[in-house]
Write a protein that binds this DNA or RNA. Sequence first.
RNA 1: GCGCCCGUAGCUCAGCUGGAUAGAGCAACGCCCUUCUAAGGCGUGGGUCAUAGGUUCGAAUCCUAUCGGGCGCACCA
Length: 579
Amino acid sequence: MNIKQLLTDKTLAAFSVLGLPEGTNPAVTQSTRPEFGEYQINGAMAAAKLLKTNPRQLAEQLLSTLELTDIADKVTIAGPGFINVSLNVNWLARQLAQAAEDPRLGVSINQQPQTVVVDYSAPNLAKEMHVGHLRSTIIGDAVVRTLEFWGDNVIRQNHMGDWGTQFGMLIAHLEDKLSEGVDLEHVALADLEDFYREAKKRFDDETGFADKSRQYVVKLQSGDSHCQKLWQLFIDTSIKHSAEVYQKLNVTLKHTDIKPESAYNSMLNGIVADLKQQKLAVQSMGALVVFLTELADKEGNPSPFIVQKTGGGFLYSTTDLAACQYRSHDLAADRVIIFTDARQGLHFKQVELVARKAGYLRDNTAYDHCPFGTMMGEDGTPFKTRAGGTVKLIDLLDEAIVRAKSVVQEKATDLNEAEIADVANKVGIGAVKFADLSKNRTSDYIFSWDAMLSFEGATAPYLQYAYTRVRSILRRAQLVENFSADIVIGSAPEKLLAVKLLRFEETLHTVIKDAQPNLLCNYLYELASLYMSFYEACPILKENVEPELRDSRLMLSILASRILQQGLDLLGIDVMERM
RNA sequence: GCGCCCGUAGCUCAGCUGGAUAGAGCAACGCCCUUCUAAGGCGUGGGUCAUAGGUUCGAAUCCUAUCGGGCGCACCA
């Protein structure tokens, strides 16, 4: 059930009867204040402006034409031409009854599924995952889960960085270590982060090492078997690390979703040859470049986009073009969504321009780069540890779980050790994810241990707690299988909760359209909050509650718990029965 | 220099295609556990929506300029 859509359709029908031009925006929105009902139709004012008529009069015409019998109790005109709709409680109750019978909780299923390729997480395999990978990984995963729930055909692609220049450096360093007789598995690759730091130091300081590294890249990319064998060791180690992180983070990415940069290697020569042949790419200062006049500066200097380095090497631009070709043509994607930080905005703009011109992206493939902000420290400067290094993601998650455990032990009195461990895990991970997912900012993202691991207010634990409260009631009620009862909405908290429950689908659509899970976070928080108010104000299992009223409230509780669980699951956050 | 993103309560952030009196959480201060889990609820205080113009019935939202912050602009990804 999508109330907003329903009212939009009704308004459009009325517009059509009134002879308003096609495309007039009904502008149906959720009401801004309780006294304005639940929805308001603002389209009359804009339409009146267009037709140069009196908005109030047009609103009155619209009102007499609108067919909202049963749906609305009261439809009134206010101010310059607002139309306020107050929904009928019996109608609401019927919609809720339908949602309760539906495994999809009343959310309709996509009638025209699209093939959507979602590129997310994409860690650099030369290092361990650090906090900078958090956003792409969990935002991408939430959007993927939501798209799948809606019914799209989703193809996850973990565009792992396994082919870059750093691997030359790592291989060169590893080779030296091996010649010193170091035990490979246990020493050299035990801590990829340390290993990377050592190699980087040599790359920067040691004469000759950088050149040697570059030679190794060329050897690797041209298929040298010895180099590939060493390279494979890094890849395997690193993928193992990332799998651990994904599991701990409750992220759906699997080994089969990995489509790393190296997977496009065989396409790169062809891409470059084709760009030359199409006269899109030209030689410039030794490199092969596509000049983009669309992105020229004020003096008319076009923006350069290098597709092949001096000396013949390929770069990520080449790989991303190949990825466009593969996704749009081979996978037949209707939409490609890429989650990376905002610093790559220009790059993806360039990729899309070139890919469209060259035909690597079909016209009917949407290409959505969804950026997010750089991680900042609490002082507003780029985020680092006190020692000046990066924070490993796995360490962050472990700390979250430890902190959660101490809170759980303090608050939960009747849980055994195993239950405490389980709750701590779900609360800690949930808190980290919710803190991040609930933010919309595309610029600065301020990282704060305290904010992230605080378990009060608008946080995952609040939602999880709301869920356990509902479940506790449902357990006590000892409901029979397939319990069902009439829903009667008699009080304000019940109506507020009812309307919110019926806005689940509406919310999911906005999440999908803009690839913004924070909208789902807001919704779930408001739902939990309204349930908490309902819980305090509307007794259920207490004495002197009429059986009909009790059963109706149980129905509302069942729906609330199911939507909370489903919504949190779309965010990749688990719930539990007790906490 | 050019370009992109951003500036909303003390702090962290919402605010959907322009709508009515700009909302949450944290922090502060009251109240509410013999009664369905107090990780909770109810209430109070807190705002020149960076600034200045413009567009219009109506602007936090759109346009222009300025100031402030972040980031990006040729062989890293």
